[in-house]
Design a binder for these strands. Sequence first.
RNA 1: GGUGCUAUCGUCUAGGGGUCUAGGACAACGGCCUCUCACGCCGUAAACCCCGGUUCGAAUCCGGGUAGCACUACCA
Length: 528
Amino acid sequence: MERKVRVRFAPSPTGALHIGGVRTALYNYLFARQHGGDMLLRIEDTDSTRFVPGAEEYIIEALQWLGIGIDEGIGCVPASGSTREWEQAKEGLPCQAGPNGPYRQSERREIYHQYVDQLLQSGHAYIAFDTPAELEAKRAEMANFQYDARTRNQMVNSLTLSAEEVQARMARGDQYVVRFKVEPNEDVHVHDLIRGEVVINSNILDDKVLYKSADDLPTYHLANIVDDHLMEISHVIRGEEWLPSAPLHVLLYRAFGWEDTMPQFAHLPLLLKPDGNGKLSKRDGDRLGFPVFPLEFHNQKDGTVSSGYRESGYFPEAVINFLALLGWHATGDQEMFTMDELIAQFSLDRVSKAGAKFDYEKGKWFNHQYLQLRQGAELYDAFVAAVPEAGKAAVQAADKAVVAHVIDLMKERVNFVPELWEQAAFFFVAPAEYDEKSLKKRWKEESPAHMRELYKVLEGIDEWTAEKLDAVVMGWIAEKEYGVGLVMNAFRITLVGAARGPHIWEITNVLGKDETLHRLQVAIERLS
RNA sequence: GGUGCUAUCGUCUAGGGGUCUAGGACAACGGCCUCUCACGCCGUAAACCCCGGUUCGAAUCCGGGUAGCACUACCA
């Protein structure tokens, strides 16, 4: 039976959205768009102790920046005039809309109560009074202790206590949890779209806590299954770290009697550290000097600041393109993809099974490519914003078209807009000093004399164009037999302060005759 | 420890029994271009984890081993 494709991205608001999470969101989005389905955003905030203020807003902003659209749920943009008559976003809160709300799990308590009761009534779950301290003691006393069919009879729960005792404990307000009663000795089959059939014996599963009375909230496992069912999710595309609990989820669907509408699973390979082994973590970014979050994040809870791709000068398209290829590959050799191309070509069966080391260098290359695609004029604002205070006035004083032209000249030699200034500063600010190495290599004994002569030659040119300058200067060099390299490199140093930069007539064009002569003069004085 | 997943150049990957003396990209290195530095172009180096089996033939299928990773909470 063909079901409408509905997928969800369901992060926890426990901090900035990790780049691996971004990729998960992206794959979900691509899959939904390709199949004409819906992409939902649900906030899984069932752990009240780990909640970080601002995290939800951050997730929405990050997804928006990246162009990962949400059709339903938190942060969605209700299509005007569509058939969806969604509730208005609450004042001051991010948009929350759709027929299956609320989309924040902490606001769905009553819904979960009903399903916890169903499981309790049907005998698929039971109430347990063991305190965290008691469980800890038990684990210390018994190696490899697991709360399951073998051990639940020795614990304090509704299976071992009389009904009256259970009532009495609940009546006097004892804290309890509801645990899932896993039947032992059963092979549970999970069909994974990426990995195929995965079989796990229920003996290794423990009686997972589904609900905790302490904060009147379900745990991830219960909330996840209930919500995916109620929200009619057709495909669960999530990280590989969830694969071990997939059998539990299958059992839960079965216990609820929802097996026939159970979503299909696809467990994505993990993003690994660039060096060494293990999952990519925030620490790796700090250690190796690259962001692991889409946007800069100021954590109000612990006061830390994490750098982001956006603030580092990345284009969202570059991040998307880079991430898309980390774990997925199209049929051909194409590397550059627009979002639309990704949507058209994405396919779960071309997702790799093995984890992908996070290759930051490749990410830079992607940004370089996208930078080359942009015109200087459209980069103007970003460039000016990235200019340090010392150079700001000079850039703002310059003609906008000239600045755009400079950007066009220089962009090919950088990966990021913020790197442009150190390459292009000399266009706007005369060199304060001359690079030692360049002088040693390109500034010869005869250079001052050459430059004095060049000054005279240039002074006589009225038509200040590249063609004219080239004709006159090259003619002069040829006539005097000075050697093009010798003269031009010295000239370059007087204008740039170092032996680098674009073609020299591009530089004189931007500087103009007066500034060119002035720099020449200053250099002659200082380097003679 | 237990369970599961995974395994091709340093990295991301192509490959689905013969077309593989294993292709592409990043990074590295060399050259060309050239007034410099970049870009670009051309090129070099660089991999099928190991052992068995199936087969005329295995990077590809199967088994075992090894290694890596994930999970093993009243976190997600």
